[in-house]
């Protein structure tokens, strides 16, 4: 495109149309008359008609649309990736995490740290586990890699707190034992695929 074309401001036929408005009063009397006319004709209510209708619906017909945050929250997608949750085994109530350290390894922000030890029951115990949420980018890799479906993302997206360390300890993330019945599987990243059963190849058994 050369400069001439650029300079060509001819943008074709202009189809503007003047609105058929009454002329704006110029005299004081004229203005007074307009105010009077508009007041008497209740034009304001015409403008507020929708608002008032909705107000009535909300107040008296139970059709309120406002979410009273923070007392109320909008439902979010079950696959939303917010603050992590640590799940428990439904049968025993024991935490699912086996301390394999894969989440620690895969985390691209390097914000997971865990301490493990050999416990009295000859098991690997996760003695401490933290996520530094100041660094977590909620990528979901940890949830995806976890072989036990132990670490998943939860719906808790409010991450303002007095302390950086809040909700980052194992106990904070773990399903409270009394809420075990309400524990739900996470359908997002790393969840069992719907056709998982078909993919399993059974191992022969000798008995």
């Amino acid at each position: 495109m050369d400069l001439e074309n650029l300079k060509d401001r001819n943008i074709g036929e202009q189809k503007y149309r003047m609105l058929d408005l009454e002329p704006t009063p110029t005299t004081g009397w004229g203005k007074f008359k307009r105010v009077l006319r508009r007041s008497v004709k209740l034009e304001l209510l015409v403008g507020l008609k929708v608002t008032i209708r909705e107000m009535f619906k909300a107040l008296f017909m139970g059709e309120m649309h406002t979410v009273k945050y923070p007392f109320e929250k909008l439902p979010i997608s079950p696959r939303y990736r917010a603050i992590h949750e640590m799940k428990r085994l439904l049968e025993s109530g024991h935490y699912r995490c086996i301390g394999c350290g894969l989440c620690e390894k895969i985390c691209i922000s390097d914000c997971i740290r865990m301490d493990t030890r050999y416990d009295e029951n000859q098991r690997k115990e996760v003695s401490e586990y933290t996520i530094n949420f100041g660094r977590c980018i909620f990528c979901g890799y940890c949830a995806e890699v976890c072989p036990e479906l132990a670490i998943v993302h939860g719906g808790r997206y409010e991450t303002a707190s007095e302390q950086r360390a809040s909700f980052s300890l194992f106990e904070d993330m773990l399903t409270p034992i009394d809420k075990l019945k309400e524990q739900k599987e996470y359908p997002g990243f790393g969840a069992v695929s719907p056709n998982a059963d078909e993919n399993i190849k059974p191992t022969p058994l000798a008995y």
């Binding site: 301390g99 394999c100 350290g101 620690e104 390894k105 493990t116 030890r117 050999y118 690997k124 115990e125």
Partner: peptide, 12 residues
């Protein structure tokens, strides 16, 4: 090693 057991993964 009894002492080392379950305290760290090799790659860490």
């Amino acid at each position: 090693s009894t002492d080392f057991k379950y305290t760290s993964n090799a790659w860490e």
